[in-house]
Computed example of a mutant assay.
Amino acid sequence: MKDGTNRKDIKIGASVEVVQKNHQRTGELTLGIVSRLLTNSANHPHGIKVQLTSGIVGRVKKVIEN
């Protein structure tokens, strides 16, 4: 399992766990499928920002499967 700091590790359709902006203090993770990559840089220390198929936007903390 990979963390979500490298853009190359995250593909559209991958199962990931993200932390939403309003859950950053608690660290509550949301499971979902990636529909869009929102971070353009190759890596980001807090996780690549993605939009899930459910419409939720958050930073990837764990990549479950690619």
Rank of each mutant, 00 (worst) to 15 (best):
I48T: 00
G4M: 01
V34H: 05
T53F: 01
Q20D: 08
E28I: 13
G13S: 09
H23D: 12
N22Y: 12
T5C: 14
V19P: 04
H44P: 00
Q24T: 13
V19A: 01
K11T: 10
S54V: 09
K11C: 04
E17V: 01
V50I: 08
G32I: 02
S35A: 09
E17H: 09
M1Y: 05
N43Y: 14
G4T: 00
S35W: 01
R59H: 12
N40W: 03
H44D: 13
G55V: 07
K11S: 09
H23P: 00
G4W: 00
L37S: 03
V34K: 08
G55C: 11
S41L: 10
I12H: 03
S54L: 02
T30S: 03
G4F: 01
H46S: 15
I10L: 03
I56E: 15
S54I: 08
L29H: 05
S54C: 01
R59E: 11
E17Y: 08
A14C: 06
I12K: 11
I56L: 13
K8W: 09
R25K: 15
G32V: 03
L52P: 02
K21Y: 15
I10A: 06
G47T: 08
T30Y: 09
N43M: 09
G27N: 03
N22A: 14
H44V: 14
H46K: 15
D3Q: 11
N40Y: 09
K49H: 12
G27I: 10
V34Q: 07
T39V: 06
S35Y: 01
V16M: 10
L37V: 12
N43C: 10
G27S: 05
I10H: 12
V16P: 03
D3N: 14
G55T: 12
H23K: 14
D3L: 11
G55F: 01
L37E: 00
H44C: 12
I33E: 10
G55I: 03
L38N: 13
T53S: 03
G47I: 04
S41V: 12
V57D: 00
Q20R: 15
D9K: 02
N6Y: 15
T5F: 13
R25L: 03
E17S: 06
K2V: 02
G13A: 05
R36D: 08
I56A: 13
V19Y: 05
G13D: 11
L38P: 04
P45Q: 13
R7W: 02
H46N: 15
G13E: 11
G47Y: 07
M1I: 12
I56F: 11
V18A: 07
I12V: 13
I48R: 03
K49G: 04
G32E: 10
Q51E: 15
N22W: 09
T39Y: 09
M1W: 08
T5L: 12
Q24F: 08
G27H: 05
N22C: 05
A14M: 10
K8T: 07
H23Y: 11
T5S: 14
I56V: 13
S15I: 07
T26I: 05
L37K: 08
D3F: 05
G58K: 06
V16R: 06
